[in-house]
Structures are given as structure tokens and as C-alpha cells.
Nucleic acid binder design. Sequence first.
DNA 1: CAAACGGCTGAATCCGAGC
DNA 2: TGCTCGGATTCAGCCGTTT
Lengths: 372, 372
Amino acid sequence: MAAANHNHIANDWLPTNRIIMGDCIAAMRELPDGCADLVFADPPYNLQLAQDLHRPEGGKVSAVDDEWDKFSSFAAYDAFTRAWLAEARRILKPDGAIWAIGSYHNVFRMGAAMQDEGFWILNDIVWRKANPMPNFKGTRFTNAHETLIWAGKSEKSRYCFNYHAMKAMNDELQMRSDWLFPICTGGERLKVDGVKAHPTQKPEALLYRVLLACTEPGDLVVDPFFGTGTTGAVAKLLGRRWIGIEREAKYVEVAQARIDGLLPLEGGMTRVSQGKRSEPRVAFGALVEAGYVRPGTRLFASGGKHVAHVRADGSLAMGDKVGSIHQMGAAVQGLPSCNGWTFWHIEAEDGRLEPIDVKRTAWRAGLGAIAA
Amino acid sequence: MAAANHNHIANDWLPTNRIIMGDCIAAMRELPDGCADLVFADPPYNLQLAQDLHRPEGGKVSAVDDEWDKFSSFAAYDAFTRAWLAEARRILKPDGAIWAIGSYHNVFRMGAAMQDEGFWILNDIVWRKANPMPNFKGTRFTNAHETLIWAGKSEKSRYCFNYHAMKAMNDELQMRSDWLFPICTGGERLKVDGVKAHPTQKPEALLYRVLLACTEPGDLVVDPFFGTGTTGAVAKLLGRRWIGIEREAKYVEVAQARIDGLLPLEGGMTRVSQGKRSEPRVAFGALVEAGYVRPGTRLFASGGKHVAHVRADGSLAMGDKVGSIHQMGAAVQGLPSCNGWTFWHIEAEDGRLEPIDVKRTAWRAGLGAIAA
DNA sequence: CAAACGGCTGAATCCGAGC
DNA sequence: TGCTCGGATTCAGCCGTTT
């Protein structure tokens, strides 16, 4: 199912693919009614940390003690939440939708406010963190997840949901409401002079799934709490238009540089499965989502006799033919079936070809081991 | 860590290990302040039901549209939620806690109401369903989880949490906030004339973990939405006292029969891992006094990088600096705190270094057993 | 060069008995 | 009640260094 309203005609004057520096409520007021297909919001969590926390070995935990996360009371936080939600809802198209992320500190208040403002909740999604920070004092359960709320602008919204793309990414099983991703670390984590540029940078894999599930190429995604611009980066990668709003100049600078340095995927690579007419896909999509295989990558078989391109949802394309790694392997050989994992090969860093099963093995050793 | 207030003295007159048939708010009003160690609540999220129960006063608004109707439903549900939460909070001991379960339809409103009523959220827990019902229409993600909120009566509550029991249950890793359980099916699912007795019967494994984590044997658990009595069944099994409140006679009957047919575990079986916090404290000076460590003995740390001398009163001396084993350990490392028992080492008879904690263990096994 | 090892870090509402 | 201070408490992943 996809939203009906995807006319991008009268919006050419919009400041798309740009960052607006300023307060998100004021900035959204400058945008016209019904211009956005999707809003993705990662607002302050209002953590209310009371004191320093030390690790067992003596180190100090780097706390989120920024001014932007401080509110004087629940009432103040609620007023702020309702204000930005109201503006976000106004700028959405009638068939638009919102995603908002939070933790137990704020997500219940935020969810209630969303319902009160007229949003219609479609799912709550649990981001299970593969590698959360432990509870150092042994006082509670390890806080190992965050919650995303997906809601339509109204109960009547015919929201966009790329059901078959999600199913293809999940080994032909329906995508569930609990998602497993590592937190943002390593090379993906943006740094300035060796220290993290933002305390709460979200992983691209999370945004990748959200945007692939709930937008189409060309759709406009607005992020009122842009931070270091993960939403913009993934939107650009996937050929979606975006507007980011961010108050702090230092984050704007980092985000702009990050997005400027990105190349979008080529047009055909961002298309995803549309239903029965295109073929079912396999869990190969999980490798794409996790960055083990990049959309657009060329796969080879039979010593280069066959070449296929990887698409964003893990399907393969050869000319106008599209299918799973198994289906396409079978098709080119004229066989009834084929194990795509051993049939298709990918170019390794040293230029040699190796079966894509190698990637699956690597994935299993990393993410997959925790997937159970 | 365990709550301090576990005196069950004056509560003998309470209707424990019984089901009270009636409205949960009215029934809780009959219970005294501060009698319960834990409340477990699985409230209805049927908005229509809530509306019938607590429809707000007021004349009918002309031109009733959907928006108004939704708001009134939410308001009615909120009023109902706040009413039962307030009573639940009143009957809790100061160090008591609550668990409440819900889905995206109601859990955000419920969580916000809990915060507003003064509860202090400790964790939100995700029950990942191993076998959820699929989304038949393919219009959303499979709704594969429910959310539990664990909260203390107040921010100051020294709530009960059997940390080591949870860690032991999880292969010696901290128990995380995402739990995997199958839904209640098969022989566990109660049936009457072949049809399920209750639409939302919870699996016993879920209650087992909750009660094992957050209560001690003999504690009183109150369930205001008893249903088929899973809370009572597991409480009886684990040697906890319980009070169940249920409005519907048919559920009361099923629950009573279910619980009557159960045998509790024998006393010793309900004991769980305790950890060092439950051991009595030992002053290092007591070891010196008892001759386990002689004054003048040299203690070593960090492979001999630090050396200190034991003084007659159990304090340590390094040059002109004197302090406890913990203070000196913290000082030489430049840390805010230190566990001196594991930091400092003593020369054993065979010449090797061993932590002074070994001496504490020996003291506890010998003199300590008598001293206590 | 591969393997082993140690250091560092991540949206964290993170102690409690005794005086 | 507030204060002091004993002493209990961590998982996964990445990266740089050592073996």
C-alpha cells in the first residue's frame, strides 16, 4: 500500500535538501500546510539526570547534560511537545505520517500527546540495541531499547507502507515491531577534534528502514530535530527530498558537511518491491540494510558471465528483470532453483570475487548472533 | 538490593490469597494505606468500556464530529486510569512498586498518567512475542510485542530488585529490558467448554520473571485486574501472598479453580541468588584484631606499583598519608571511590599475591560465623 | 602478519546502612 | 532527617598496541 497523494508539483519553492537553522516550531511555521510526506522527529528526551555516574573501573559516564535537554517540569515538556507536534501535523499532507523516537523518560508523554493532537498510531516499534550501555550499579534491568511511534496524520490517512519491501528484508516473513540494530559507533559516529559531535546520533540503519518502509523516491521528509543530520543523509542516499531544522550552529555545520560528502544511490537502486508482480526477496536485504552490501553493488556469477545489481531492499536487478538472489540465479541458469548465496559473488577489497555467503557469515558473527 | 520495609506484622487481617469480586477502584478503597509490596496491573484498553464506566458529565455538544468523540474517549479513559492508579499508589508501601502492561493503544496514556500520579519509572520492558498474530492485511508491521512499565511508588522508593537472580537467569549477563516469551497457548491456556476463558490471558513465564525480580517470599502482591488469575497462580507458586480483584464472576470462578489446583514450591525452592550486598559488612580492622592480618603487613596493588602498611587499627599508611583500605585505594588511583577488598593484595604463604578479600572470606567462615 | 590483549565508550532518570 | 563513608557494580564493539 502506498499513499495516493504524491504530487510534488507546487512545492518547488520549498527549501528542500537544506538545513534551516533555528527553533523548530518557528521554522515549521514558515512551511505551508500539507507540504510534507513524512516527519521524522528525535526530540529531547528530558532525561532528568541527577548526579554523576561512575563505571565500576572508575571512569565517568559521559552524560547528556546539554541545555537543550533540560525542562523545568513535565508540564513544560508537555507544552513544548504539543507545540511542535501541532506544527508537524499541520505541514503534513493529509495522507502523511510521522515517526517519533524516545525512551521511557519521555515516550509515554509524547505518545499521549500525539493521540491528543489527532495523530493515529499505526505501530510502536522497539529499537533493540545490540550493544547498549550496561546498568553499572546493578539497580535495574539494562535499558536496552528505545521506542519509535509511527502514526498517520489522522485515522483516515492512507499512509505509505512498502509492505513487500519490508517483507523482502526479513527473509520473506512479515517485518515485526521489534528491530535489532547496533548503536551508532565506529566510523559512522561523527567526531569533531576526536570527541563525538552529538551525544545522541542515531544509526543510519534505523533511518534506512524507516524511510524505505514509509516513503517513496521524491517524497519530502522533514526532520525538526536534525542534529547531525542522519535523516538527511539517508534521505539523500535513498533519493528522498528532505528539510532539516536544527537550532545549534555546531550541529548544522557538522550535518551540512556530512551530507555534502554523500553521493545518492543511482535512481534504479532505490526502487523497492511493489507486490505480487515483482518477485519475493530474501534476508539478503538485512545485509544491505546493515551496510554489509551497498545498494548498487554489482554481483557476478559464472566467472563474470552474469552480472546483477543489488537494489535497496536486497533484491537483484538484471536489465528489466528483478528477483531474489535465488530466483535470479535460477533464471540465468535456466534451472528450477538455485542457492543464491553460493552462486553470486561480490568483489572483495583486493579485487577478488568471493561468494556473498561470506557476507552472510560476517553478518551472523555480528548482528545475527543476537537476532535470536 | 531489596526493599527495607518487609514487615508483615499488622496485615494479618488482610484478605490475602483471595479474590475480591467487584470494581477494582472500590475494592482497593477497602484496603489500608501502604499494605502492598507490589501491584501488578493488566488493565483493559477498551475505550468503549472505559467510556461506559466513567463518562464525563456535561451536555451533548452539537455537531459531534470524530475529533470530539475521540477526545472524549481519551479523556474518559484517562480519568479511569488515574483513578485506579491513585488507589494502587495509596495501598503501596513507601518502598513498593508497580508493574503495568499495555499495548500502543493505551500504554502511552497509562505511562504518562503514572508519571503524573507520582510514580517513578524504573524501566520499560518489552515483551517480545515469539509467536505473535500476523498482520493479515499487510498494512503495518506485525504487532509483535507488548510493553510493561515498572515504576517505584516515588522517586525515593528503595524498591526491591533481585539483581543477581535476574543475572543468573540470563547466563550471567545482566537481564535486559527486552524479554522473549511465547504467548499463552496450549495446556496453559485456560478453556471453558473448549473456548478460551479470557481473551488476554498472560503467560505464567512473564509473571514468574516479574515476581522473581521484584518481590521476596511473603511479600504481598495486589492485582486489580485479576482476570484468570495468572498473577495469583505464580504468586502462590513462588510463596508470595496475593490479593486479586476481578469484576466478572465468570473469570473469578476460573481463576479460583486454577489457583486451588496449584501446589506452591517448597520453601527452599523460592530462594534466589543474593550477591555480596546481602552479606554482613566486615571492617578490615576486625581482621587485624583477630590476627588474620598482622599490623605492619605490607599490602600491594597494581602489580607492586603501590605499597602500603597495615596499622594496628586497620588503617593503611603510605608515607605520611593514612586512610581506610578504600580511601587509600581511591587516592593512589585518583578515583572518587575504590573497593579496597579487591584492590589491595597480600602475600600468601607460598609468596604469591592474593586480594585481601580472601582474608575476609576466611574471617566470615571462621570468627564471623560466631560473631554474627 | 595474525592473534591476543587492553583501553575506551555508548540518551543513564544507577547505593544504602548506620549514625 | 541529612550526612558520612564502606564498598558493590559492566556488555559489546571498535581501535590501537603488543605478542
